[in-house]
């Protein structure tokens, strides 16, 4: 397997606080990789450095063999990394279809082709029937799927998903897991998940990394990681049943 995303010794400090401390991992093409950890562990900071929102103080991030750390968010997206936001940010005044169309226009100059692509993606994510609705009036699960649809329409090689399961009911979570699995299988898109919902992580991830106080404490296959004593004491807790 070839490495798609390589994170090497990446660190980020905010004044005196070390948010992310020398984190390294490699995400292979076609893989689903999860980053977990308690609140404040530095997951979102790590995510934002990959997405180009923050510039790391140390280390390097490479995507498809090229350095991407320090690039702007739009440049990162143009190289093939799509992202969602932890707190969803659809374009509220636009229709569902136009939201996705804007994503599709990134690599398509032709309006008709972009619209076809947008509708195709909406179909995959159960949003086709709501394409004419204003995004502001969608429910939370629909908004989460809309964010995913918008990111997908940019034809990413890698999807960065920041807690897409948060706030979803168990049945909705299962549906999202199923959608992501299908996407990964059918389109080959790699996925980097930042997630709290262990049930989703266990169902999806091939590899995972556990952060605690900004530093990696464990990594490997999910079933191995959840038995790691350090992970149990710092994050999962003794009583956790998966």
């Amino acid at each position: 397997m070839t490495a798609l995303l390589v994170v090497e010794g990446v660190g980020k400090r905010f004044r005196g606080l070390t948010a992310v401390d020398r984190v390294s991992f490699t995400l292979a093409a076609g893989e689903i990789f999860a980053v977990i950890g308690p609140n404040g562990a530095g997951k979102t900071t790590l995510f934002n450095m990959i997405a180009g929102v923050l510039k790391p103080n140390d280390g390097a991030i490479s995507f498809c063999g090229e350095r991407i750390d320090g690039l702007t968010p739009d440049a990162v997206c143009r190289r093939g990394i799509g992202r969602t936001f932890q707190i969803v940010r659809p374009f509220p005044g636009l229709s569902v279809e136009d939201n996705v169309l804007i994503g599709a226009l990134l690599h398509r100059k032709d309006m008709a082709a972009a619209r076809r692509c947008a509708r195709d993606v909406l179909g995959r994510l159960d949003l086709y029937d709501k394409r004419g609705v204003q995004a502001a009036s969608l429910t939370l699960p629909d908004r989460k799927r809309l964010e995913l649809a918008r990111a997908l329409a940019t034809d990413p090689k890698l999807l960065l998903l920041d807690e897409v399961m948060a706030g979803l009911r168990p049945t909705e979570t299962d549906r999202m897991v199923e959608i992501l699995k299908t996407l990964n299988r059918e389109t080959g898109v790699s996925i980097l998940l930042i997630e709290h919902v262990m049930r989703a992580v266990m169902a999806l991830a091939g590899h995972m990394l556990v952060l605690h106080h900004g530093a990696p404490i464990a990594s490997g296959k999910p079933e191995e990681v959840v038995r790691d004593p350090a992970v149990i004491t710092s994050y999962l807790g003794q009583e956790t049943v998966i």
Binding site: A51, V53, T72, P73, D74, C77, R78, G82, R83, F85, R89, P90, F91, P92, G93, L94, D98, L101, I102, G103, L105, L106, R150, A151, T154
Partner: peptide, 18 residues
């Protein structure tokens, strides 16, 4: 459409490569 995206939410627009 790029303008509308920037108008609605600039950070989200940039995340879509604009």
């Amino acid at each position: 459409y790029q303008w509308r995206a920037v108008r609605e939410d600039e950070a989200a627009a940039r995340a879509l490569g604009i």
